[in-house]
């Protein structure tokens, strides 16, 4: 299976070479090439990729700032002209750090590191019980990653470029889209009921016509989701 790759680099020559090396490898599929981090972030919020080749120094938003805003973490290979960022790279858990200009040999080594990690991940996953469902999520909010159990989340609301996770005790706001959240949570007891809402089905108190109530909050149900909601709950 081919691994999906995006390149985020403001230097056109660097992008051209990484693209060429991806083609030479044969097992990498380039799905996007961006000269700035903002456009890349838009893409990443709607598409999950396996590998990012990421430049550090870019105008407006740096490579590290892009990583701060991501809701999931693919394998990251930093590409930079300087070696000053090694410590930060370590902190962000990047797989490799390629100094420009990048040779094909060095590129191959970086991909081999990813393959090696994937083999370890695969062994670890095989040792896990496949029936165990994902029951928690890490949310990047207030500059840190916070673990939240699915059972604590009442509903999730879209607010422009952000999403708000509402729990009984606290609300968390993260830079993301409802579409990205939907991919991760729907099917784990959550359901999208409106273009701005995903709800925890176990927390619904009442349903009436085109609204439902969770902890006193009245949430609209779009017409297109009404029959799906009824299918998902036990009506006696």
């Amino acid at each position: 299976m081919k691994r999906s790759v995006i390149i985020v680099d403001d230097e056109p020559m660097a992008r051209s070479f990484i693209q060429r090396y991806c083609e030479k490898m044969g097992n990498l599929e380039l799905v996007g090439s961006f000269e700035d981090a903002e456009k890349a972030l838009d893409f990443l919020n709607n598409n999950e990729v396996d590998i990012i080749f990421l430049d550090v120094e870019m105008p407006n938003v740096s490579g590290f700032q892009l990583l701060d805003q991501m809701t999931y973490m693919p394998k990251v290979i930093l590409t930079t002209g300087k070696v000053d960022y090694a410590f930060d790279a370590f902190e962000y858990g990047v797989v490799d750090y390629l100094k420009k200009p990048i040779t094909f040999k060095r590129f191959q080594e970086a991909i081999e590191k990813i393959n090696f990690q994937a083999r370890i991940d695969s062994v670890e996953n095989n040792n896990k019980n496949p029936d165990v469902k994902m029951e928690e999520i890490f949310i990047k909010s207030d500059g840190k990653l916070t673990r939240i159990s699915f059972q604590d989340i009442l509903y999730i609301e879209s607010i422009g470029d952000y999403v708000k996770y509402i729990t009984a005790n606290k609300n968390y706001i993260a830079l993301s889209t409802l579409k990205a959240v939907e991919k991760k949570m729907v099917g784990n007891g959550f359901m999208k009921v409106h273009r701005s809402y995903i709800v925890n089905l176990h927390k619904i108190k009442d349903i009436k016509d085109n609204t439902l109530v969770i902890e006193g909050k009245v949430i609209p149900i779009s017409r297109s989701y009404q029959s799906d909601v009824k299918d998902r709950i036990n009506v006696v």
């Binding site: 051209s16 070479f17 060429r20 040779t103 094909f104 040999k105």
Partner: peptide, 25 residues
């Protein structure tokens, strides 16, 4: 030599990309 590692095709590619892109930049 250090970047193209004696790969003539890679070297030609690098020169081509440069000649294509530098006038506009």
């Amino acid at each position: 030599e250090s970047i193209y590692e004696n790969d003539k095709e890679d070297a030609a590619f690098g020169f081509e990309q440069f000649l294509k892109s530098y006038p506009a930049h």
